[in-house]
Amino acid sequence: MGKKNDEFDILNVGGFSNIFKGVANLLDLVSRMDREGKNEFFQTGEIGGGKKDGLKGVYGFSVKLGGNGPRVEQFGNVRDGAAGPVLDDIREPLTDVFVEDDHVLVILEMPGVQEKEIQVGLKDNILFIKTVTGIKNGRKYEKEVCLNVPVIPESLVNNYNNGILEIKLERKNEPV
Rank of each mutant, 00 (worst) to 15 (best):
M1N: 04
E7G: 12
I10P: 04
L11H: 07
V13K: 09
I19N: 09
I19V: 14
V23R: 13
A24G: 10
L29A: 12
L29W: 03
R32Y: 00
R35G: 01
E36F: 11
N39V: 15
N39H: 07
F41G: 05
F42C: 02
G45N: 08
G49D: 03
K51V: 15
K52E: 06
D53P: 07
L55Y: 01
L55A: 04
L55M: 07
K56N: 02
K56A: 08
G57H: 03
F61V: 06
S62D: 10
V63Q: 03
V63F: 00
N68E: 14
G69R: 02
P70Y: 06
G76F: 11
V78S: 02
R79G: 01
D80T: 05
G81E: 02
P85K: 08
V86I: 09
L87V: 09
D88V: 08
D88Y: 00
I90A: 04
R91V: 03
P93K: 00
V97C: 03
F98A: 12
V99L: 10
E100W: 04
D102M: 02
L105N: 06
L108C: 13
P111G: 05
G112T: 03
V113M: 09
V113H: 06
Q114M: 12
K116V: 08
E117P: 09
D124W: 07
D124K: 07
I126G: 08
L127H: 04
I129F: 05
V132F: 00
I135A: 01
I135D: 00
R139A: 04
K140C: 05
Y141H: 06
L147M: 07
N148M: 11
P150V: 02
P150E: 00
P150K: 00
L156A: 11
V157W: 06
N158Q: 10
N159D: 13
G163V: 11
L165V: 12
L169P: 15
E174K: 14
E174T: 15
E174C: 13
V176F: 11
